[in-house]
Nucleic acid binder design. Structure first.
Length: 413
DNA sequence: GCGATCAGAT
DNA sequence: CACATCTGATCGC
Protein backbone atom coordinates (compact mmCIF):
# COMPACT_ATOMS: atom_id res chain seq x y z
CA UNK A 1 0.00 0.00 0.00
CA UNK A 2 1.19 3.44 -0.84
CA UNK A 3 0.28 5.76 1.96
CA UNK A 4 3.20 7.95 2.95
CA UNK A 5 3.36 10.98 5.14
CA UNK A 6 5.86 13.24 3.46
CA UNK A 7 7.22 13.57 -0.06
CA UNK A 8 10.34 15.49 -0.99
CA UNK A 9 10.76 16.55 -4.62
CA UNK A 10 8.25 13.89 -5.58
CA UNK A 11 4.82 14.84 -6.81
CA UNK A 12 2.80 11.70 -7.30
CA UNK A 13 -0.17 11.38 -4.98
CA UNK A 14 -0.25 9.60 -1.66
CA UNK A 15 1.43 11.94 0.80
CA UNK A 16 0.03 14.31 3.38
CA UNK A 17 2.55 17.10 2.83
CA UNK A 18 5.03 17.89 0.09
CA UNK A 19 8.48 19.47 0.27
CA UNK A 20 10.41 21.10 -2.57
CA UNK A 21 14.19 21.50 -2.22
CA UNK A 22 14.69 23.94 -5.09
CA UNK A 23 13.16 25.08 -8.33
CA UNK A 24 15.27 23.30 -10.95
CA UNK A 25 13.13 21.61 -13.55
CA UNK A 26 14.17 18.03 -12.81
CA UNK A 27 12.89 18.39 -9.25
CA UNK A 28 9.50 19.72 -10.24
CA UNK A 29 8.47 17.04 -12.72
CA UNK A 30 4.84 16.37 -11.87
CA UNK A 31 4.22 19.80 -10.35
CA UNK A 32 2.00 22.15 -12.32
CA UNK A 33 -0.15 25.23 -12.02
CA UNK A 34 -3.13 22.99 -11.30
CA UNK A 35 -1.51 21.41 -8.22
CA UNK A 36 -3.98 20.62 -5.44
CA UNK A 37 -2.72 17.49 -3.72
CA UNK A 38 -1.67 19.24 -0.54
CA UNK A 39 0.49 21.85 1.15
CA UNK A 40 3.84 22.55 -0.46
CA UNK A 41 6.75 23.56 1.78
CA UNK A 42 9.75 25.42 0.39
CA UNK A 43 12.14 28.30 1.05
CA UNK A 44 11.20 31.95 0.86
CA UNK A 45 13.21 32.49 -2.32
CA UNK A 46 11.65 29.44 -3.96
CA UNK A 47 8.21 30.78 -3.03
CA UNK A 48 9.11 34.15 -4.55
CA UNK A 49 10.06 32.51 -7.83
CA UNK A 50 7.14 30.12 -7.92
CA UNK A 51 4.76 32.24 -10.01
CA UNK A 52 7.37 32.71 -12.75
CA UNK A 53 7.46 28.96 -13.25
CA UNK A 54 3.84 28.10 -12.44
CA UNK A 55 1.80 31.23 -13.26
CA UNK A 56 -1.60 30.05 -12.05
CA UNK A 57 -0.38 28.10 -9.01
CA UNK A 58 -2.64 28.37 -5.97
CA UNK A 59 -0.26 30.25 -3.69
CA UNK A 60 -2.36 29.59 -0.61
CA UNK A 61 -0.98 26.04 -0.70
CA UNK A 62 2.60 27.24 -0.22
CA UNK A 63 4.24 27.28 3.21
CA UNK A 64 7.60 28.94 3.69
CA UNK A 65 10.08 27.04 5.85
CA UNK A 66 12.53 29.32 7.62
CA UNK A 67 16.12 28.12 7.90
CA UNK A 68 17.56 26.86 11.18
CA UNK A 69 14.53 26.35 13.40
CA UNK A 70 12.26 23.39 14.03
CA UNK A 71 8.76 23.46 12.54
CA UNK A 72 6.12 20.99 13.64
CA UNK A 73 3.63 19.25 11.38
CA UNK A 74 0.53 17.47 12.63
CA UNK A 75 0.12 14.39 10.48
CA UNK A 76 -1.54 11.02 10.58
CA UNK A 77 0.61 7.99 11.23
CA UNK A 78 0.37 5.61 8.28
CA UNK A 79 1.00 2.72 10.68
CA UNK A 80 -1.46 3.40 13.51
CA UNK A 81 -3.84 5.81 11.84
CA UNK A 82 -3.59 8.13 14.82
CA UNK A 83 -2.23 11.65 15.02
CA UNK A 84 1.52 12.11 15.15
CA UNK A 85 3.86 15.08 15.09
CA UNK A 86 6.75 15.43 12.70
CA UNK A 87 9.45 18.07 13.15
CA UNK A 88 11.38 19.54 10.26
CA UNK A 89 14.33 21.90 10.03
CA UNK A 90 15.62 23.47 6.82
CA UNK A 91 19.31 24.10 6.15
CA UNK A 92 20.76 26.14 3.27
CA UNK A 93 21.85 23.67 0.59
CA UNK A 94 24.21 26.13 -1.07
CA UNK A 95 23.24 24.81 -4.50
CA UNK A 96 21.20 27.56 -6.11
CA UNK A 97 19.06 30.45 -4.79
CA UNK A 98 16.42 29.12 -2.42
CA UNK A 99 17.82 25.57 -2.27
CA UNK A 100 17.31 23.73 1.02
CA UNK A 101 18.03 20.44 2.73
CA UNK A 102 15.42 19.11 5.15
CA UNK A 103 16.04 17.36 8.44
CA UNK A 104 12.99 15.38 9.62
CA UNK A 105 12.32 13.91 13.06
CA UNK A 106 9.30 11.76 13.82
CA UNK A 107 8.04 8.29 14.65
CA UNK A 108 10.10 7.01 11.72
CA UNK A 109 13.30 8.27 13.33
CA UNK A 110 15.62 10.97 12.11
CA UNK A 111 16.35 11.54 8.46
CA UNK A 112 18.07 14.15 6.35
CA UNK A 113 17.17 14.80 2.72
CA UNK A 114 19.97 16.90 1.28
CA UNK A 115 18.53 17.65 -2.14
CA UNK A 116 21.23 18.93 -4.46
CA UNK A 117 23.93 20.66 -2.42
CA UNK A 118 27.55 21.84 -2.22
CA UNK A 119 29.71 21.46 0.87
CA UNK A 120 32.89 23.51 0.47
CA UNK A 121 35.23 23.77 3.43
CA UNK A 122 35.87 27.41 2.69
CA UNK A 123 32.22 28.47 2.53
CA UNK A 124 30.63 30.50 5.26
CA UNK A 125 27.18 29.16 4.34
CA UNK A 126 28.50 25.64 4.87
CA UNK A 127 30.00 26.63 8.23
CA UNK A 128 26.58 27.88 9.35
CA UNK A 129 24.86 24.77 8.00
CA UNK A 130 27.32 22.47 9.75
CA UNK A 131 26.64 24.13 13.10
CA UNK A 132 22.89 23.93 12.57
CA UNK A 133 23.02 20.25 11.69
CA UNK A 134 25.23 19.31 14.62
CA UNK A 135 23.10 21.30 17.08
CA UNK A 136 19.91 19.86 15.67
CA UNK A 137 21.20 16.29 15.88
CA UNK A 138 23.01 16.69 19.20
CA UNK A 139 22.82 13.30 20.85
CA UNK A 140 20.58 11.73 18.30
CA UNK A 141 21.67 9.38 15.57
CA UNK A 142 20.82 10.05 11.95
CA UNK A 143 18.91 7.00 10.76
CA UNK A 144 18.81 7.74 7.06
CA UNK A 145 20.76 10.16 4.94
CA UNK A 146 19.26 10.84 1.51
CA UNK A 147 22.34 12.16 -0.21
CA UNK A 148 23.21 14.11 -3.35
CA UNK A 149 25.37 11.39 -4.89
CA UNK A 150 25.72 13.06 -8.29
CA UNK A 151 29.52 12.92 -8.03
CA UNK A 152 29.86 10.00 -5.65
CA UNK A 153 32.92 8.51 -7.27
CA UNK A 154 36.62 9.23 -6.59
CA UNK A 155 37.01 10.25 -10.21
CA UNK A 156 35.08 13.44 -9.46
CA UNK A 157 37.61 15.81 -8.02
CA UNK A 158 37.27 19.53 -8.58
CA UNK A 159 38.00 22.79 -6.77
CA UNK A 160 35.73 25.06 -4.77
CA UNK A 161 33.56 27.50 -6.67
CA UNK A 162 35.69 30.29 -5.26
CA UNK A 163 38.76 28.89 -6.99
CA UNK A 164 36.84 28.14 -10.19
CA UNK A 165 35.42 31.68 -10.23
CA UNK A 166 38.95 33.09 -9.99
CA UNK A 167 39.98 30.96 -12.94
CA UNK A 168 37.09 32.32 -14.96
CA UNK A 169 38.09 35.89 -14.15
CA UNK A 170 41.65 35.02 -15.21
CA UNK A 171 40.36 33.75 -18.53
CA UNK A 172 38.35 36.93 -19.07
CA UNK A 173 41.36 39.08 -18.17
CA UNK A 174 43.47 37.15 -20.65
CA UNK A 175 41.07 38.23 -23.40
CA UNK A 176 40.77 41.99 -22.89
CA UNK A 177 39.54 42.65 -26.42
CA UNK A 178 37.02 39.82 -26.57
CA UNK A 179 33.34 39.60 -25.92
CA UNK A 180 32.60 36.91 -23.34
CA UNK A 181 29.56 34.67 -23.21
CA UNK A 182 28.86 32.38 -20.27
CA UNK A 183 26.34 29.54 -20.49
CA UNK A 184 23.98 29.35 -17.52
CA UNK A 185 20.55 27.92 -16.68
CA UNK A 186 17.40 29.66 -15.56
CA UNK A 187 18.48 29.45 -11.91
CA UNK A 188 21.94 29.08 -10.38
CA UNK A 189 25.48 30.53 -10.88
CA UNK A 190 24.39 33.99 -9.71
CA UNK A 191 27.30 34.17 -7.26
CA UNK A 192 29.71 33.54 -10.11
CA UNK A 193 28.24 36.41 -12.09
CA UNK A 194 28.36 38.68 -9.03
CA UNK A 195 32.00 37.79 -8.47
CA UNK A 196 32.90 38.57 -12.08
CA UNK A 197 31.00 41.83 -11.91
CA UNK A 198 32.64 42.95 -8.66
CA UNK A 199 36.14 41.85 -9.61
CA UNK A 200 36.13 43.41 -13.06
CA UNK A 201 33.83 46.29 -12.19
CA UNK A 202 31.59 45.50 -15.10
CA UNK A 203 27.90 44.88 -15.67
CA UNK A 204 26.62 41.50 -16.83
CA UNK A 205 24.12 41.10 -19.65
CA UNK A 206 21.32 38.60 -19.08
CA UNK A 207 18.21 37.78 -21.08
CA UNK A 208 14.99 39.49 -19.98
CA UNK A 209 13.44 36.56 -18.07
CA UNK A 210 16.70 36.10 -16.22
CA UNK A 211 16.77 39.78 -15.27
CA UNK A 212 13.34 39.36 -13.75
CA UNK A 213 14.64 36.45 -11.66
CA UNK A 214 17.56 38.62 -10.48
CA UNK A 215 15.17 41.36 -9.45
CA UNK A 216 12.84 38.98 -7.64
CA UNK A 217 15.78 37.58 -5.71
CA UNK A 218 16.97 41.07 -4.81
CA UNK A 219 20.41 40.90 -6.40
CA UNK A 220 22.29 44.18 -6.77
CA UNK A 221 21.68 46.25 -9.86
CA UNK A 222 24.61 44.96 -11.89
CA UNK A 223 22.59 43.02 -14.45
CA UNK A 224 21.37 44.56 -17.66
CA UNK A 225 19.57 43.58 -20.85
CA UNK A 226 21.33 46.32 -22.84
CA UNK A 227 24.05 44.77 -24.97
CA UNK A 228 25.98 48.00 -25.36
CA UNK A 229 26.73 48.30 -21.64
CA UNK A 230 29.08 45.32 -21.26
CA UNK A 231 31.20 42.75 -23.05
CA UNK A 232 30.21 39.96 -20.65
CA UNK A 233 26.95 38.19 -21.36
CA UNK A 234 25.32 35.28 -19.56
CA UNK A 235 23.27 33.29 -22.06
CA UNK A 236 21.01 30.25 -21.73
CA UNK A 237 23.09 27.13 -21.79
CA UNK A 238 21.01 25.54 -24.50
CA UNK A 239 21.81 28.45 -26.84
CA UNK A 240 25.52 28.02 -26.22
CA UNK A 241 27.26 25.87 -28.83
CA UNK A 242 30.25 25.69 -31.11
CA UNK A 243 28.04 26.99 -33.92
CA UNK A 244 26.95 29.96 -31.83
CA UNK A 245 30.56 30.85 -31.03
CA UNK A 246 31.71 30.49 -34.63
CA UNK A 247 28.86 32.66 -35.77
CA UNK A 248 29.57 35.32 -33.17
CA UNK A 249 33.23 35.34 -34.16
CA UNK A 250 32.35 36.43 -37.69
CA UNK A 251 31.07 39.64 -36.06
CA UNK A 252 33.39 40.22 -33.10
CA UNK A 253 36.14 38.23 -31.35
CA UNK A 254 34.24 36.24 -28.74
CA UNK A 255 35.01 33.43 -26.32
CA UNK A 256 32.57 31.19 -24.51
CA UNK A 257 32.92 29.95 -20.93
CA UNK A 258 31.09 26.90 -19.67
CA UNK A 259 31.00 26.68 -15.89
CA UNK A 260 30.92 22.88 -15.38
CA UNK A 261 31.52 20.22 -17.94
CA UNK A 262 33.50 17.15 -18.62
CA UNK A 263 37.26 17.79 -18.88
CA UNK A 264 37.83 17.51 -15.14
CA UNK A 265 36.09 14.18 -15.09
CA UNK A 266 38.20 12.89 -17.98
CA UNK A 267 41.40 14.10 -16.40
CA UNK A 268 40.36 12.78 -13.05
CA UNK A 269 39.72 9.38 -14.52
CA UNK A 270 43.29 9.27 -15.76
CA UNK A 271 44.78 10.76 -12.62
CA UNK A 272 42.81 8.61 -10.21
CA UNK A 273 42.62 5.37 -12.10
CA UNK A 274 43.97 3.33 -9.23
CA UNK A 275 42.84 5.53 -6.43
CA UNK A 276 40.26 3.34 -4.83
CA UNK A 277 42.68 0.58 -3.98
CA UNK A 278 44.28 2.78 -1.33
CA UNK A 279 41.44 5.16 -0.69
CA UNK A 280 40.31 3.74 2.61
CA UNK A 281 43.32 5.17 4.33
CA UNK A 282 43.60 8.20 2.15
CA UNK A 283 41.45 11.30 1.92
CA UNK A 284 40.48 12.69 -1.45
CA UNK A 285 41.36 16.34 -1.39
CA UNK A 286 40.04 18.38 -4.26
CA UNK A 287 42.87 18.54 -6.71
CA UNK A 288 44.46 21.91 -6.26
CA UNK A 289 47.50 21.40 -8.44
CA UNK A 290 45.56 20.54 -11.52
CA UNK A 291 44.90 23.57 -13.68
CA UNK A 292 41.30 22.73 -14.13
CA UNK A 293 40.07 25.15 -16.76
CA UNK A 294 40.37 23.64 -20.17
CA UNK A 295 40.15 25.01 -23.67
CA UNK A 296 37.87 22.45 -25.23
CA UNK A 297 37.59 24.35 -28.51
CA UNK A 298 39.22 27.31 -30.20
CA UNK A 299 36.67 29.63 -28.61
CA UNK A 300 35.38 27.62 -25.65
CA UNK A 301 36.72 27.26 -22.12
CA UNK A 302 35.19 24.74 -19.74
CA UNK A 303 35.74 25.43 -16.05
CA UNK A 304 34.80 23.02 -13.24
CA UNK A 305 32.45 25.36 -11.41
CA UNK A 306 30.05 22.86 -9.83
CA UNK A 307 26.93 23.39 -7.74
CA UNK A 308 27.11 19.78 -6.56
CA UNK A 309 29.62 18.54 -4.00
CA UNK A 310 32.68 16.59 -5.14
CA UNK A 311 33.68 13.18 -3.84
CA UNK A 312 35.94 14.57 -1.12
CA UNK A 313 33.11 16.74 0.16
CA UNK A 314 30.75 13.77 0.20
CA UNK A 315 33.29 11.92 2.33
CA UNK A 316 33.57 14.85 4.76
CA UNK A 317 29.80 15.16 4.97
CA UNK A 318 29.31 11.49 5.79
CA UNK A 319 32.12 11.51 8.34
CA UNK A 320 30.46 14.48 10.01
CA UNK A 321 26.99 12.96 10.28
CA UNK A 322 27.80 9.25 10.58
CA UNK A 323 24.39 8.13 9.37
CA UNK A 324 23.18 4.61 9.99
CA UNK A 325 22.07 4.28 6.41
CA UNK A 326 22.64 6.21 3.19
CA UNK A 327 20.51 6.39 0.10
CA UNK A 328 21.57 8.21 -3.04
CA UNK A 329 18.94 10.53 -4.50
CA UNK A 330 20.37 10.44 -8.02
CA UNK A 331 20.54 7.43 -10.27
CA UNK A 332 22.80 7.76 -13.26
CA UNK A 333 23.78 5.70 -16.24
CA UNK A 334 27.34 4.89 -15.41
CA UNK A 335 29.56 7.21 -13.47
CA UNK A 336 28.15 7.18 -9.98
CA UNK A 337 26.88 4.44 -7.78
CA UNK A 338 25.20 3.95 -4.44
CA UNK A 339 27.14 5.91 -1.77
CA UNK A 340 27.71 3.02 0.60
CA UNK A 341 29.67 1.34 -2.16
CA UNK A 342 32.41 3.70 -0.97
CA UNK A 343 31.26 4.85 2.44
CA UNK A 344 29.81 1.81 4.10
CA UNK A 345 32.79 1.82 6.48
CA UNK A 346 31.94 5.34 7.64
CA UNK A 347 28.36 4.59 8.61
CA UNK A 348 27.33 4.73 12.22
CA UNK A 349 26.37 1.59 14.07
CA UNK A 350 25.22 -1.88 13.24
CA UNK A 351 28.05 -3.44 11.29
CA UNK A 352 26.01 -6.63 11.10
CA UNK A 353 23.29 -4.70 9.37
CA UNK A 354 25.77 -3.66 6.72
CA UNK A 355 27.23 -7.12 6.29
CA UNK A 356 23.77 -8.49 5.84
CA UNK A 357 22.83 -5.89 3.31
CA UNK A 358 26.08 -5.79 1.42
CA UNK A 359 25.34 -9.05 -0.30
CA UNK A 360 21.85 -7.96 -1.24
CA UNK A 361 23.12 -4.59 -2.37
CA UNK A 362 25.77 -6.07 -4.60
CA UNK A 363 23.14 -8.11 -6.35
CA UNK A 364 20.76 -5.21 -6.52
CA UNK A 365 23.46 -2.96 -7.88
CA UNK A 366 23.83 -5.10 -10.93
CA UNK A 367 20.27 -4.27 -11.75
CA UNK A 368 20.11 -0.68 -10.63
CA UNK A 369 23.46 0.51 -11.85
CA UNK A 370 24.16 -2.00 -14.53
CA UNK A 371 26.67 0.05 -16.46
CA UNK A 372 28.89 1.15 -13.62
CA UNK A 373 32.54 1.02 -14.54
CA UNK A 374 33.71 -1.57 -12.07
CA UNK A 375 37.32 -1.44 -13.20
CA UNK A 376 37.81 2.19 -12.27
CA UNK A 377 36.22 1.78 -8.87
CA UNK A 378 37.33 -1.53 -7.42
CA UNK A 379 40.24 -3.00 -9.33
CA UNK A 380 40.69 -6.68 -8.84
CA UNK A 381 37.13 -7.43 -7.89
CA UNK A 382 36.34 -10.95 -8.89
CA UNK A 383 33.63 -11.88 -11.36
CA UNK A 384 34.03 -8.65 -13.30
CA UNK A 385 33.30 -10.60 -16.43
CA UNK A 386 30.01 -11.74 -14.96
CA UNK A 387 29.04 -8.19 -14.16
CA UNK A 388 29.92 -7.03 -17.61
CA UNK A 389 27.66 -9.61 -19.11
CA UNK A 390 24.81 -8.12 -17.15
CA UNK A 391 25.64 -4.68 -18.47
CA UNK A 392 23.76 -4.68 -21.72
CA UNK A 393 20.65 -6.38 -20.56
CA UNK A 394 20.04 -3.81 -17.83
CA UNK A 395 20.49 -0.68 -19.87
CA UNK A 396 16.78 -0.32 -20.41
CA UNK A 397 16.00 -0.68 -16.76
CA UNK A 398 18.67 1.84 -15.84
CA UNK A 399 17.29 4.40 -18.21
CA UNK A 400 13.86 3.85 -16.73
CA UNK A 401 15.26 4.56 -13.29
CA UNK A 402 16.96 7.62 -14.58
CA UNK A 403 13.76 9.00 -16.02
CA UNK A 404 12.06 8.48 -12.71
CA UNK A 405 14.13 11.38 -11.47
CA UNK A 406 14.66 12.69 -7.97
CA UNK A 407 12.52 12.59 -4.90
CA UNK A 408 11.40 10.28 -2.19
CA UNK A 409 8.39 9.51 -0.11
CA UNK A 410 9.28 9.29 3.54
CA UNK A 411 7.87 6.88 6.09
CA UNK A 412 5.69 4.74 3.89
CA UNK A 413 3.67 2.17 5.73
C1' DG B 1 -6.83 21.38 -28.45
C1' DC B 2 -4.30 21.14 -24.17
C1' DG B 3 -1.51 19.29 -20.66
C1' DA B 4 1.33 15.49 -19.37
C1' DT B 5 5.02 12.44 -20.69
C1' DC B 6 8.84 10.89 -23.34
C1' DA B 7 12.95 10.82 -26.56
C1' DG B 8 16.67 13.26 -28.18
C1' DA B 9 19.82 17.13 -28.50
C1' DT B 10 22.80 20.33 -26.36
C1' DC C 1 30.98 10.70 -19.43
C1' DA C 2 27.03 15.13 -15.92
C1' DC C 3 23.54 18.44 -15.24
C1' DA C 4 19.54 20.97 -16.55
C1' DT C 5 16.91 22.45 -20.09
C1' DC C 6 14.73 22.92 -24.55
C1' DT C 7 12.27 21.07 -28.64
C1' DG C 8 9.34 18.17 -30.80
C1' DA C 9 6.62 13.78 -30.89
C1' DT C 10 3.25 11.12 -28.79
C1' DC C 11 -0.41 9.96 -25.50
C1' DG C 12 -4.71 10.69 -23.08
C1' DC C 13 -8.70 13.31 -22.05
Amino acid sequence: MESGMISVDKWSSGSQVYFLTHLHADHTVGLSSTWRRGLLYCSRDTAKLFPTKFPDFNLSLIRVVEIGCWHSLSLVSPNSGSATTVYVMAIDANHCPGSLMYLFRGEFGCMLYTGDFRWEKSSNTVEVGRTMLLNALKNEKLDILYLDNTYCNPRFSFPSREVAAREIVDIINAHPEHDIIIGIDSLGKEDLLLYISRTLNIKIWVWPERLQVMHLLGFPDIFTTKTALTRVRAVPRYSFSVETLECLNTLRPTIGIRPSGLPWSMKAVKANENVFGSSRSQTHEPNRDLRSAERSHEYIYTVPYSDHLCFAEIQEFIELLQPVKIKGIVSSLSSNIEPYYFFRHLCGTKQAFWRLHQKLDNEEKLEKVGTVDIKSTIPGTSSVAGRKRKKVQFVNRVSLLRKSGHGVRIADS
